[in-house]
Amino acid sequence: MEFVRYQVDAGQHFYDKLHQHPEWQLTWIKEGKGQLMVGDYLGRFKPGDVYLFSANMPHVFRSDPEYFSPEWSRQSIGYTLFFDFEALGNHIWEVEEFAPLQQWLLQIKGCYHVKGMTNSFIQEELMLFGKKEGLDKLMGSLHILRQLQQSKEMKLLNKLIPQKNYTETEGKRMGQVMSFILAESHRTVQLQEVADLANMSKEAFCRFFKERTGKTLTEFLSQVRIHHACQLLQETDLSVSQIAYQSGFQNLSYFNRAFKKFRGETPKEFREKF
Rank of each mutant, 00 (worst) to 15 (best):
I161Q: 09
Q163A: 03
K164Y: 12
K164M: 11
Y166I: 00
T167I: 07
T167N: 05
T167R: 03
E168M: 11
E168K: 14
T169V: 15
E170M: 07
E170L: 03
M174F: 14
G175M: 08
G175N: 09
V177Q: 02
M178Q: 02
M178L: 14
S179N: 06
S179F: 06
I181C: 12
I181P: 03
I181S: 06
L182K: 04
L182F: 10
L182E: 05
A183F: 01
A183W: 02
A183G: 01
S185W: 01
S185L: 02
S185P: 00
S185M: 06
R187L: 08
R187Q: 10
T188K: 06
V189C: 05
V189L: 12
V189D: 09
V189F: 05
V189M: 06
Q190H: 14
L191K: 15
L191Q: 15
Q192A: 15
Q192M: 09
V194C: 05
V194S: 10
V194E: 08
A195C: 05
D196M: 04
D196G: 03
D196F: 03
L197G: 03
L197D: 03
L197H: 05
A198F: 00
N199V: 12
N199M: 15
M200P: 12
M200E: 13
M200C: 10
S201E: 04
S201Q: 03
S201K: 05
E203S: 10
E203C: 01
E203L: 13
A204Y: 01
A204T: 07
F205I: 10
C206L: 02
C206S: 13
R207L: 13
R207E: 14
F208C: 01
F208Q: 07
F209I: 04
F209N: 06
K210P: 00
E211T: 03
R212V: 00
T213I: 12
K215M: 15
T216L: 04
L217S: 02
L217K: 02
L217I: 06
T218D: 15
T218A: 15
E219A: 13
E219F: 08
F220T: 14
F220H: 15
F220N: 11
S222N: 15
S222K: 14
S222F: 07
V224H: 01
V224E: 03
V224I: 12
R225K: 15
R225E: 08
R225N: 10
I226E: 09
I226V: 13
I226R: 05
H227R: 10
H227E: 14
H228L: 02
H228F: 13
H228I: 00
H228W: 06
A229M: 09
A229Y: 01
A229F: 05
C230S: 13
Q231F: 13
Q231H: 13
Q231G: 07
Q231D: 09
Q231K: 14
Q231P: 00
L232Q: 15
L232R: 13
L232N: 07
L233Q: 04
Q234T: 14
T236D: 11
T236L: 10
T236S: 14
T236K: 09
D237P: 01
D237L: 08
D237I: 00
D237Q: 14
S239Y: 03
S239D: 10
V240K: 07
V240R: 08
V240E: 13
V240H: 07
S241W: 11
Q242T: 07
I243F: 04
A244D: 04
A244Q: 03
A244N: 02
Y245W: 04
Y245H: 13
